[in-house]
Design a protein around this nucleic acid. Sequence first.
DNA 1: AAGGATGGCAACCGCCGAACC
DNA 2: CGGTTCGGCGGTTGCCATCCT
Length: 256
Amino acid sequence: MGRQPCCDKLGVKKGPWTAEEDKKLINFILTNGQCCWRAVPKLAGLRRCGKSCRLRWTNYLRPDLKRGLLSETEEQLVIDLHARLGNRWSKIAARLPGRTDNEIKNHWNTHIKKKLIKMGIDPVTHQPLNKEAKPEEGSSHAPHSADNHITENDGTGANSSEDNSSTPTEDSDLLDAICNDESLLNSLWMDEPPLVDASWTSMPAGEPNCNMPSWDNCSWLLDCQDFGVKDFGFDYLNDIELNTMNTLEMGDKTVA
DNA sequence: AAGGATGGCAACCGCCGAACC
DNA sequence: CGGTTCGGCGGTTGCCATCCT
């Protein structure tokens, strides 16, 4: 039967976002909040697909995002969660404040995977690689099954990570707490709202600038310094929002 | 210094499930 | 209740920067 495309393919721009497009999207979201992504491009004056706008916002423009590499703790947490949840990046991301599923997925594919292989651990099953040679042991037929991971409540392999040497004690404690917390893991499976980022994702539509995240806690804001906000002409924005715009322009410079 | 290889990341694609009518 | 729409998710691609020869 075929689904309708999420947007009119004709005249829809693709590829990297420009500074101008970012400005328009930010301006629109800050003014109107998140609602009806399909309508956003038209209302914001963008020649983009609504999906593309949502992706750009959630993965790059969102004010509560941390930028930069994952810390050792975060990385270890990703490994442990992946051992239990499989490739459920959104679930994993929900446990890492300021990180997006896309970012974690990328980091997994580019860094962690190799790291685990180097350590002799299968990044899919989280079992020692030499064990994988065994043809039996169910894992072979359902390597991607999250159920497979979650029922392995001992979290073998990843949990007792051979890389502990580089992890500070408090990090290990944190990980233990998370990984041994049955209710937490259950909540992951019960699709409960995430413990973090809730304030942002729950921002009601049509209520501009309400329930904004804790902006002053956003370390990324500290990174913005040489930003010409006046160029935007957003006179109505408050200081916090101006800070956001500052960071964006800084990012734009790197793009341009 | 130049060209090729490799790695990293932003963005796109297609599918799925929930919500809505 | 079935069809349609929309948002979200995970996999994949393609571009760009960096490294290597």
